[in-house]
């Protein structure tokens, strides 16, 4: 009888079963979009590294600024050399938590992700709602949020001030798979 209650307890209260403690992707997708009356600018990064600790719901994301691909080569050059100064600050990082991760179901969930975004040598607390699709073999985290260019000390020259939005939309789609060292 005791054994039965134990099994019942486990089945009722364990919402997720993960094959590994850590889930990882090295091909996460992050893109940003700037809309202005003069032009729309968009860049994609397909080499985003992201790790989720399923025991705590902590998420750590890293990407190389130089991996952002712009359709216009000149724009990519300006972005790296003048705006984000990627030779000085090669990476952007996000360290945070998927709120209530351990109580999410193996399902498509909507929850908050909160943490610190480090970009261009500046740090800012970011909080956004994201879709967290949990399956046994894959955890997909999708969402979008906006950032103010000025918050990260990114200086836009007055010549192109009308080409680049003050608020940039950032989209992400990260498909994490079980990770074992």
């Amino acid at each position: 009888m005791n054994k039965f209650y134990f099994i019942l307890f486990t089945v009722l209260f364990v919402n997720q079963t993960f094959s590994q403690d850590k889930y990882l992707t090295k091909n996460g997708f992050v893109s940003f979009f700037s809309h202005s009356l003069v032009e729309d600018i968009r860049a994609d990064n397909n080499q985003v590294l992201s790790i989720i600790d399923t025991k705590t719901g902590q998420i750590a994301i890293q990407l190389l600024m130089k991996s952002f691909f712009f359709k216009k080569a000149l724009m990519q050059e300006h972005f790296n050399e003048n705006y984000v100064e990627s030779y000085k600050y090669p990476k952007a990082k996000f360290k945070g938590e998927i709120i209530n991760f351990t109580s999410l179901n193996e399902d498509i969930n909507e929850t908050e992700i909160k943490g610190i975004l480090s970009l261009h040598g500046e740090e800012k607390e970011i909080s956004t709602i994201a879709i967290v699709d949990i399956q046994n073999k894959e955890i997909k985290v999708t969402g979008e949020f906006t950032v103010e260019v000025a918050d990260f000390n990114i200086k836009i020259p007055s010549v192109v001030i009308n080409n680049i939005a003050k608020t940039i939309k950032i989209s992400f789609e990260l498909h994490h798979k079980p990770y074992s060292k």
């Binding site: 090295k26 080499q47 590294l49 990407l63 190389l64 130089k66 991996s67 090669p90 990476k91």
Partner: peptide, 11 residues
Amino acid sequence: CSGFLLDVIMV
């Protein structure tokens, strides 16, 4: 070469 995260990244 773009740099390094957990691995060297080439694009």
